[in-house]
Write a protein that binds this DNA or RNA. Structure first.
Lengths: 209, 209
DNA sequence: CTCCAAATCTAGACAATGTAAAGATTGTAG
DNA sequence: CTACAATCTTTACATTGTCTAGATTTGGAG
């Protein structure tokens, strides 16, 4: 069905949503500017009024991924305001869960399309805020004495935990973990165990929710 | 310069090497079947005698990545035959270093192109052997008492360490770690710290080599 | 050695894609 | 109301993945 108005009205956002939908239905390989334009009901060159090139659409989709992760973090922080350890546990699981629920959206979010520090300001912004949230949670855990400092710089601790979660998420998404393990051990248990090994914290499965 | 013989002689391998070279020079986005064919000095359809489609060339390149990582592991194992802890430390760093030296080769190796378990037998083979090596090193560390078992299933321990290294490698490759940290802390220190946090092992920087 | 089938390579074609250019339509600031 | 800027369409072109038909070469059966 063709549009009534010549102008779409909200094309930029429609293209981002179309892109996310394509990722969900057809995966990374199915994403194209023209297909997104078709879904939004505009001509194949219309996107160029809003995105300089395909990379910029991808950057916008990646920003949206970071934003969604950030929202989940914020939700958890207000849910357990005075329990930083639970924030850490639940936040970690929420992060991984986003990856499992929207695998290709997650992958594109961390696909490393953004090299230039100056372009894609929104992406940089959200990405840094996510890192900042993790830093804060870890700082609070340390202050509360529920997370070992152990002479480890807290920045290095944050980066290590993030790296761990990121790596496991990708390996799970891409089915690269030993099939033996996958059959006997649900993702949640893998994350729980990994977190305990890394941070030596006393958490249980319930605290991931 | 055109070939002398009608038949290339070793086209399959030449295409793989061409692909790896393209990855090094132009990155993931620059890789195309036709470009690889051009480099090998054959027509654009010649690759189809050796690879059913582009995915199969990618799978072959990914297999090569796994093979190179495996070779590094083996080298380290014969270098420190009776020091499993050092095998773990040096192996971990060798893994990350491969990612830093050949970022896009590393990325394509773990890009998750292989979904079907039955196709791409070579990839599955190498991938499993890499996992097996890590398992063995960890088992030896445990037996030698230089790595805490701590009630953690050894498969989960292996997967966690792998996830950690994989995640950190990607974040470093894609420059997604806080720029503040990058400026003050070389990759080697990041890996060393992460390993110590995860496995609570007593290793120093020298042992990574 | 001969000859044929299989393996390998070329040439040509097609659809999909990213993207540039030129022009049409619409919203809006003055 | 009008001129300008933003938005959108149409047309066009190069690149790419992949298919088909045919040419060349190789290896092995007889």
């Amino acid at each position: 069905m063709p549009r009534k108005t010549y102008h779409h009205g909200n094309l930029k956002n429609a293209l981002i949503q179309a892109g996310i939908a394509i990722l969900a239905e057809e995966g990374l390989g199915g994403l194209s500017l023209r297909k997104a334009a078709r879904r939004a009901g505009v001509s194949h060159a219309a996107p160029y009024a809003h995105f300089a090139d395909k990379q910029n659409l991808i950057a916008a989709i990646a920003s949206d991924g970071h934003k969604k992760i950030l929202e989940r973090f914020e939700t958890i922080r207000v849910k357990y305001p005075d329990n930083p350890l639970r924030q850490l546990a639940a936040g970690a699981w929420a992060y991984v869960k986003f990856g499992l629920q929207a695998p290709d959206h997650y992958r594109i979010t961390f696909s490393g399309v953004i090299q230039d520090e100056h372009s894609h300001a929104e992406f940089i912004e959200y990405s840094q805020r996510n890192m900042q949230v993790l830093r804060e949670i870890i700082a609070q855990c340390r202050s509360a004495g529920v997370l070992d400092a152990d002479g480890v710089d807290s920045e290095l601790q944050a980066v290590s935990i993030w790296g761990l979660l990121h790596g496991l998420t990708l390996l799970m998404i891409q089915k690269q973990l030993p099939s033996q393990l996958i059959k006997t051990c649900p993702p949640k248990d893998i994350v729980l165990s990994a977190l305990q090994q890394m941070a030596r914290i006393s958490i249980n499965k319930r605290m991931l929710d």
